[in-house]
């Protein structure tokens, strides 16, 4: 008695449908997260010249760190370079929308904030922008996560999340770690 040569094709077709179905379920969950609670990778294609960003414009030394603008929007600007963050500590308010903007004047860097979904590459030539909201106060580690040269392991910063009551901008709207 020979076995039915089509039976294995049938079982494999059943299995293939099940697997495509499983993949589609994951795809659905990912797409839902990206559309509904807006959990997307940071992707603003915004250019900045790495050779002049320290001389004029948004990323000069005075503008770095956390700043609250006239409309009350919180923006934190950080320059990542071999082998440090400027500034190395930033303060942000709890339960408020915060926008981080990172640039690099030299080579590729990257960063994450431990325990959050904040994660971006910092590519020279581009502004990397991440919107987020922190729901717990505390000091969080923000290490450089992309190899940027031999001093890479020393490149670490901190994000300090404080309750809104303790988040007190000065007359220029600026908030620094020293006062907190």
């Amino acid at each position: 008695m020979a076995i039915d040569p089509l039976s294995n094709a049938r079982s494999e077709r059943r299995w293939a449908f099940a697997m495509v179905g499983a993949a589609m379920m994951m795809l659905f969950a990912i797409v839902w997260a990206s559309l509904s609670p807006h959990m997307n990778p940071p992707s603003n294609i915004e250019n900045v010249d790495p050779n002049t960003l320290h001389i004029a414009g948004e990323f000069t030394e005075d503008n770095l760190g956390t700043q609250v603008d006239a409309k009350g929007r919180v923006t934190t600007r950080i320059v990542t370079s071999q082998f440090s963050f400027a500034p190395e500590c930033v303060v942000v308010p709890q339960d408020m929308q915060v926008t981080f903007r990172f640039v690099s004047p030299d080579v590729i860097h990257g960063l994450l904030v431990v325990g959050t979904n904040i994660n971006t590459m910092v590519v020279p030539g581009y502004v990397s922008q991440v919107h987020t909201m922190f729901d717990k106060p505390g000091d969080m580690l923000m290490p450089c996560h992309e190899f940027c040269g031999l001093g890479h392991s020393q490149m670490v910063a901190h994000v300090r999340v404080v309750p809104i009551a303790d988040f007190k901008p000065d007359e220029n709207g600026r908030v620094a770690c020293a006062e907190h």
Binding site: A23, M24, M26, S43, I45, G110, T120, M121, V123, V127
Partner: peptide
């Protein structure tokens, strides 16, 4: 995915193709 030089659109297209490569 975490790079600033590409749009969400092309990242999504390649994400969908990546799901298919699991098959």
């Amino acid at each position: 995915f975490m790079d600033p030089e590409h749009s969400t659109g092309f990242k999504s297209i390649q994400m969908i193709l990546t799901v298919l490569v699991a098959v």
